[in-house]
Simulated assay, not measured.
Amino acid sequence: MTARIVVLDGTRASLLERLHDVRSQGDIPLVGDQRWPQEHWTAVRALAAAKAVPEEAAWATLTSGTSGTPRIVLRSHASWQQSFAAIATILTGPVLLPAPPASSLTLFSLAHALNGGPQPVDNDEATCFHGTPQALRTVLESSAYPRLRTALVGGSHLDPQLRAAAQARGIRVVSYYGAAELSFVALDQGTGLRAFPGAELGVRRGELWVRSPYTALGYLGTAGPLRRDGDWSTVGDRANLDDGVLTLQGRADSAILTASATVVPEDVEATLRTIAGVRDAVVFGFPAPGVGAIVAAMVEPLGAPLTVGELRTTVAAHCGPAHRPRLWFTGSLPRTASGKPARAEVRRQALSGKVERLA
């Protein structure tokens, strides 16, 4: 009998049991997000029902949607199972999973739990954490989970100050780079991102390529950034690889073309995060006649309101003229289900005048 994709709501009550039931029937679970509007649920269910799935497919996840509409990603069970042993050396006890189950990083940990891995908890028994930097920051700002000793952090950039704050509380921090399509690619245990066990990294013309057993089968009924060349795969992330240490420079399709310059948003965002009072930031292109786009930034304050003067002073000291934001916005950043800043939504809100502009 042909397997089908079963779309589950994101309620956590008995979710492990429901995932087990779907898998035991030979079907493929896909967990949705309770915060979705009804039309999004309808679209995802229609796509899941309309297309045949490969025989080896066992799990369906969603891309994070940081740059557009989420896609359904199909993967075999082996593509996750083969990484369980490496993750088990990091997450060794009950694990806190703050990101919604619709997030591929949370669903990975639930799949691991079904195969004898650390069991998910949401109480003071948690000794491990698997989630995004934003979720880790929230945990550190609270007095909850006093027994946490290990944090596996992925999904977006980990601020060095956040790593230091966690370590000061006695929490060992292991961050990683991965993607819904590639799973784990590289780990950083404090000395830079290095290839995840079993993965091989290469950079071709500035673009990161990965050869590993963890790559997904592909997308369901849609195209996406995943490309293959034999055993190698890429999702288009720009990177440098120097003596085994990987430095990411962002997705190629997020680059801002402004006049004669190409600006990588992640480079400017890294500078903005060093400014006192900035919790997080997103840089994007704002359409401008004659030059294509100008660099704009939305900053999320930490505490007191920010001023354009202090922001401009810092970027002027660290960024070339073409890379300095000309427009500034402020407010709480919209985020994806996994906690990543939603770049496309930030840009949409700025263009429609729905966020505060700093004068």
Rank of each mutant, 00 (worst) to 15 (best):
L74P: 15
R45W: 05
P70A: 04
E55D: 14
T63C: 04
L91M: 12
T106K: 03
T106S: 08
W36N: 01
T138N: 06
F84P: 08
G26M: 04
P29H: 14
T69H: 03
W80I: 06
P37W: 09
V73N: 07
S64H: 07
A113G: 07
A50F: 02
D122M: 04
V31P: 08
E17W: 13
T127P: 00
Q34C: 12
L19C: 03
I90D: 04
T63K: 05
P94R: 03
T69N: 05
P133G: 00
P94H: 09
L91T: 15
D122K: 04
A52E: 00
I28N: 04
S64E: 06
P118W: 13
Q38F: 11
R45K: 14
P118H: 13
S109T: 08
F108N: 04
T42S: 09
N115E: 09
Q25W: 06
D124S: 03
A52R: 05
S24E: 02
H130N: 13
E17L: 12
L105M: 12
A50M: 08
P101K: 04
T89V: 12
K51R: 06
A113S: 11
P98R: 06
L62T: 14
L97W: 13
I72S: 11
A126I: 14
L19F: 08
D27R: 14
A85F: 11
A43F: 00
A52L: 00
A102Q: 10
V73G: 07
W59R: 02
R18K: 15
V121F: 14
W80V: 07
W36I: 04
V121D: 03
T138W: 12
L19K: 05
A85G: 07
L19Y: 03
T132G: 00
A111W: 08
P54N: 04
T127D: 01
Q119W: 08
K51W: 09
S67A: 07
E39P: 00
P118C: 10
A99K: 00
E17G: 10
E55T: 14
A57T: 15
L110H: 13
G32S: 10
I72V: 13
T92E: 05
R35K: 15
A85I: 10
P29S: 05
R137V: 15
R23F: 06
P70N: 01
I90G: 07
A102E: 05
V31R: 04
A86Y: 06
G116L: 11
L107S: 12
P94F: 14
Q82I: 09
A99F: 05
A111D: 10
R23D: 03
A57S: 12
P70Q: 00
N115L: 02
L74R: 10
A111N: 09
A43C: 00
S76I: 03
W59A: 01
L30Y: 12
A78C: 02
A135S: 14
H112T: 02
T138V: 11
